[in-house]
């Protein structure tokens, strides 16, 4: 398949005797929202941690197709995951920079290109023209995204002072400022009310359709999963128990069993 973005083969992650991920194989496409669901402790976040270099996978391979350039995600860790591989992620809990303004949060995500333009900040100190130009561009990108999530008028407020739902959205657009190829979202709808969830669906669909960024989504909120997923991977005890479209997943007996238990 030419539009496969992420290709995970036989991924296994062991912590001592505990097998957190057991021989997991799945792929995600460029223009798809791929959801990973499963009961608590199924190993969903561990998959993300392997993808973004927090854990070193015990076995298996993970490849990212970046403009027909196959990148081995196992080779990237720390800041290179975002900078070189183009993978962005969010966490279950909100991890904005709460003491920095909303706009600054967006600018931090564009650090690398600004750092080059500013000659490692020296030109930035003397306000050189080329740097000001680049900074203006970064500012435009930030404003563009803030407009989309409706936070333009709060750009100068501290990110920590925003309401919870807005912080969630800000986290996602901040990750988009890295210009990632793959966006990994860990429970973005956790704690959102119905209207905020609907807004989130809209935002994620926009990112998928207009920005052509592949999204990997861990989510418990089924209204989000069923509403926007193109493809669903179901995990239980680290094993993939089902894979298919949202509709197929909803009707699958294995999935129902994992979530609700068996009928005696």
């Amino acid at each position: 398949m030419s539009n496969t973005l992420l290709d995970v083969q036989n991924l296994t992650m062991k912590f001592g005797g505990l097998i957190a991920i057991d021989d997991l194989t799945f792929s995600a496409k460029k223009d798809h929202i791929t959801s990973i669901i499963g009961p608590n402790g199924a190993g969903k976040t561990t998959v993300f941690n392997c993808l973004t270099g927090f854990y070193k996978a015990t076995a298996g391979s993970m490849y990212l197709n970046k403009e027909n350039n196959k990148m081995d995600l196992k080779k990237f860790s720390d800041f290179k995951v975002a900078q070189k591989a183009g993978v962005a992620r969010t966490f279950q809990n909100i991890r904005l920079f709460p003491q920095m303004s909303v706009l600054e949060n967006m600018m931090v995500a564009q650090h690398n290109k600004l750092m080059v333009a500013s000659g490692f900040s020296i030109l930035g100190l003397i306000n050189s023209k080329s740097y000001l130009q680049k900074e203006k561009e970064a500012m435009e990108i930030s404003k563009y995204w803030l407009d989309i999530i409706g936070l333009t008028n709060r750009a100068d407020d501290n990110a920590g002072d925003l309401p919870y739902g807005d912080q969630r959205k800000l986290e996602i657009v901040r990750a988009m400022c890295i210009e990632p190829h793959l966006l990994c979202l860990d429970e973005p709808a956790a704690g959102l009310n119905a209207k905020e969830s609907a807004d989130l669906n809209k935002l994620l669909k926009f990112i998928k359709n207009d920005k052509k960024t592949g999204i990997l989504l861990i989510e418990h909120d089924m209204s989000v999963v069923m509403g926007i997923s193109d493809h669903v991977v179901v995990l239980n005890y680290g094993k993939k128990i089902f894979e298919g479209t949202a509709k197929e997943t909803k009707n699958s007996p294995e999935v129902i069993e994992a979530y609700l238990g068996t009928e005696d």
């Binding site: 720390d78 800041f79 995951v81 975002a82 900078q83 992620r89 920079f97 650090h111 901040r174 890295i178």
Partner: peptide, 13 residues
Amino acid sequence: QDRTMTALMGINV
């Protein structure tokens, strides 16, 4: 404020 998150923004911490 958050070194892990800063690294995930692609910044060489």
